[in-house]
């Protein structure tokens, strides 16, 4: 049986060799799968192409989910920053718009890449596309960043899990935001240690977040949690790049997430029995959805 890896091991390996985290992750994948490095790289690049397709589709006006509950949020926000100087910074708002766009593509039965799940699929592509533009990174740098994000996601998956039904939204949007923060910090030139700090800073803000989808659909609040997850990832990356450290290391934050997930009642784990799903407005929406024919 293969031993579980940790973030500190990934960081130590990268530091020791003076390479980015993504290289450690890529080489590990090569060993585990017994597949050629270029094939693994090529597959990840194809996934990035699908992500780009979902980013493009997401910000078009006229989008609408199958239920009609969500749709044009990404387009609205994009239009807003074309005319107004946003309070939270252009990059953050652009990433938030893109994240919602991809999440709506998912909710309208479009083609996406789960990252780590379908419900949280907007955060990582939105953050990476935005950071690539801000830093002038080439496409291969984004593909590398996807390996870094995947490595972080694997650690989370091994130690805590990434399913909302098991650990709440902290494990879905929280994991995605954490993965995106690490990848963003590394792409922007941060050290492996800074990148790990970015992940810890992001994930700490999702601890305890429950999975409470209105009417059982991957729409409310999921689409907007993708937006804010993207914003948190960028802010966490900036904080880490400025030299701020998370006093609690990422491995321990992940362990805390698992314990919180285990303690979370079933009514707040994708069952739509409580939380936002149990509010009067949510019940009203649910009733309306059942009446549609």
């Amino acid at each position: 049986m293969r031993r579980k890896i940790t973030i500190s091991e990934l960081v130590a390996a990268a530091e020791q060799r003076g390479c980015p985290i993504w290289q450690v992750v890529l080489e590990r994948e090569e060993r585990l799968q017994g597949t050629e490095r270029q094939d693994i790289w090529h597959k990840m690049k194809e996934y990035w192409m699908v992500m780009k397709g979902s980013l493009d589709a997401g910000t078009k006006p006229g989008n609408r989910s199958l239920s009609g509950l969500v749709g044009e949020e990404g387009a609205l926000l994009t239009r807003y920053i074309e005319k107004t100087k946003p309070l939270s910074g252009y990059g953050s708002v652009l990433a938030a718009a893109r994240a919602m766009g991809v999440a709506v593509v998912n909710a309208s039965q479009g083609r996406i890449v789960a990252a780590p799940t379908a419900g949280s699929c907007g955060i990582l592509p939105a953050v990476l596309a935005t950071v690539a533009e801000e830093t002038g990174a080439v496409e291969d740098a984004v593909v590398g960043a996807l390996f870094t994000a995947a490595g972080v996601g694997m650690v989370i998956d091994e130690h805590a899990g990434t399913a909302g039904a098991k650990s709440g939204c902290q494990a879905e949007c929280g994991s995605a935001s954490c993965m995106a923060a690490v990848a963003a910090a590394e792409m922007a030139g941060g050290t492996p240690r800074q990148a790990a700090n970015a992940g810890a800073l992001a994930l700490k803000n999702f601890l305890g977040l429950v999975c409470d989808p209105v009417a059982g659909l991957v729409e409310i609040p999921c689409v907007k949690r993708n937006a804010i997850g993207a914003g948190v990832a960028l802010l966490a990356a900036d904080m880490a790049l400025a030299g701020i450290e998370s006093k609690i290391p990422l491995d321990e934050v992940i362990q805390a997430m698992k314990e919180i997930g285990d303690a979370m009642p079933a009514s707040l784990k994708e069952t739509s029995l409580a939380g936002l799903a149990g509010t009067p407005t949510a019940r009203e929406i649910e009733k309306r959805m059942n009446e549609i024919d």
């Binding site: 799968q33 083609r111 789960a114 990252a115 780590p116």
Partner: peptide, 23 residues
Amino acid sequence: MPARSVFEIIGPVMIGPSSSHTA
């Protein structure tokens, strides 16, 4: 079960909104 591959974290490419309801 722990993820065996990076593509279990980034991936699969799928049609939304959820693998149990679509795939």
